[in-house]
Design a protein around this nucleic acid. Structure first.
Lengths: 343, 343
DNA sequence: TTGAAAGCGATACCAG
DNA sequence: CTGGTATCGCTTTCAA
């Protein structure tokens, strides 16, 4: 009979069976018009009979493209990151691109750096969420002409989707000031590691600016730093709320941290918002559920826009001139039930 | 001087520059020992000078493996799915495998079916979360000898990680019965589409079983079906709570739906748990935050185990005999503050 | 319109 | 030990 089917059918098998050349099969596969209908039919029959499916790997090699978009995200454990990834997925889902997820939290930094950027040929484009690549990586990315877009992190070399964190921090703090608060504390992130982007720091800046604009003296003991986890934030907040001169309001650099503050208040028997006002940042889904007043940033939208922009770059080809545009998304305070005038 | 560097350096460039054959370069690259130190040094120098990085694509083609694990997830918008993916990511992060995410919610079914399983050569293994593949796909997966593991969905052909949904539903309902409730309603999913797994249906079964065991007559008007979204569940719950004979307790097939029920109660001014008890299912993070009594299933753990099992299969090679073991993870009721004896 | 052949960039076998 | 060459499965000139 025929050659024994060792493994899945290849384009050669199809060509042989249809009695044509591989080139012709390829043309049919790619919807080229310059194929006689009769020939096309023969090829289609062979494909059907052999249950042939083209190998995307071989295709990748030949075309020098992967149809994959890489999404690099630190700390995939955070709600905000997930929300952004959702935005990305919503765009890629309607495109021919697949989504490769690189969670650098889960792996050793060195290994990651090696693997991810090994050549940049695992994906046709990279979306970096909330992290700024070190300079040497930037250089390699450019050398590899790999389209890149940053979300929630600024970099002079790449287009980026950001928000005005300073302004966000300012808005939150102003809201508290306008309610009449004067003793306002801040709970934020630790100083960032080389990879992560320091959005929290900018929010601190906004906090300080709002205070000084209102003529309120900043108290060093009111500014605390920890990690994003609400557990850690809770501990920090407990310290804060045990101060001899206790703050009447807390602005947290993220909703996760704000939730920790809320827990701390509950533990200490401090009523919110009567005795303590709390403002978060992000407006993750939980915020609405627990009635947390917060600064909303368009998380899903940022992922969506980032993906759109990246797809555009990818489509534009490697030779286009990419200007590192900075797209700024709006922020706004969403007032719910964790803030009120000081008791 | 040398050939102009059109694109990144290849293994040929390295071989030429080092004055050796490509075979030797490949050996060095792959850490083979049978290379003279001097030769190795020359190759390493050339690699360094050329900033050469091997092409993973070409590697894939030659090796016939991708070092990618595909994770197929419907409804990536749900917390439980995300939690599972986290579990998967935690395992893959410490492995040489990358994670490709296929969100079939975001794309057209037909397109998906074509793309995802086109040949199965985009990944070395597939993890299917909460969905059962249609029979023809199963056949293709087997034909392609692509290792597969199901999480939160049973199938006679593949190993799977599951929980006992019937028992979960039973436990939840029993908890309510033991509190003294007799008018217990159920809010669950719609009948499943061909793809999605019907865990909700099994939970209904458990609900019914618990009722009958307690000698409580099941009321058809107390069993409602909608979607997973809490918005829809809220609407359904409002209907339910407006019934002439209103239930004193509701068991929801997921925490998302339970949150909808909670909202409904708030809207109607019904106090929880005094006038209405609510039990959810999953124990997503939010559940703890809002104090929801729920049936805990190990979401993260299920992803973790699934990934571990899959990696094992992948390592085992294509020729091993895979018995479709079913691994069952435990469920338990977590009692918080949304359940109490009927008022 | 179509077939033959040359890449794409690695791995692996086979002599030497 | 090492170089040469076939191979992986597809796309794409280049002639015919």
């Amino acid at each position: 009979m025929e050659t024994l089917p060792s493994g899945p059918a290849t384009i050669n098998d199809v060509a042989a069976r249809a009695g044509v050349g591989v080139g012709t099969v390829s043309r049919v596969l790619n919807g080229r018009t310059n194929v006689r209908p009769v020939t096309r039919a023969k090829v289609l029959d062979a494909i059907e009979a052999l249950k042939y499916r083209p190998s995307s790997i071989a295709r990748n090699l030949s075309l020098r493209r992967t149809h994959v978009i890489g999404v690099v995200v630190p700390f995939f454990t955070s709600h905000s990151a997930v929300e952004r990834v959702r935005g990305v997925a919503s765009v890629l889902g309607r495109s021919p691109y697949d989504l490769m997820l690189f969670d650098i939290e889960a792996e050793d930094r060195r290994e990651h750096a090696f693997r991810l950027f090994d050549r940049g040929d695992r994906s046709d484009g990279l979306l970096l969420l909330s992290l700024v690549p070190p300079d040497d990586e930037v250089e390699r990315l450019r050398a590899a002409r790999l389209p890149c877009v940053l979300v929630d992190a600024p970099h002079p070399g790449f287009p980026s989707i950001v928000i005005d964190d300073v302004r966000g921090g300012e808005l939150a703090t102003k809201h508290l000031i306008e309610l009449g608060h004067r003793l306002i504390a801040f709970v934020g992130d630790k100083p960032p590691d080389p990879f992560r982007f320091a959005s929290s720091r900018d929010r601190t800046l906004g906090y300080e600016r709002a205070l000084s604009q209102a003529g309120i003296e900043a108290r060093p003991e009111f500014v605390r730093e920890g990690t994003q986890s609400h557990q850690v934030a809770r501990g920090i907040a407990i310290d804060l709320l045990r101060l001899p001169q206790r703050p009447t309001a807390v602005f947290a650099a993220s909703d996760a941290q704000a939730l920790g503050v809320l827990e701390a208040a509950r533990i200490l028997g401090i009523r919110v918002p009567q005795e303590l006002s709390v403002v978060g940042f992000d407006d993750v889904e939980v915020a609405a559920l627990v009635g947390l007043t917060t600064v909303r940033q368009p998380l899903f939208e940022s992922g969506r826009r980032g993906a759109e922009l990246l797809l555009q770059l990818v489509a534009g080809g490697a030779d286009q001139v990419v200007e590192p545009v900075v797209e700024q998304l709006p922020v706004e305070v969403v007032i719910r039930s964790t803030t009120a005038a000081p008791g």
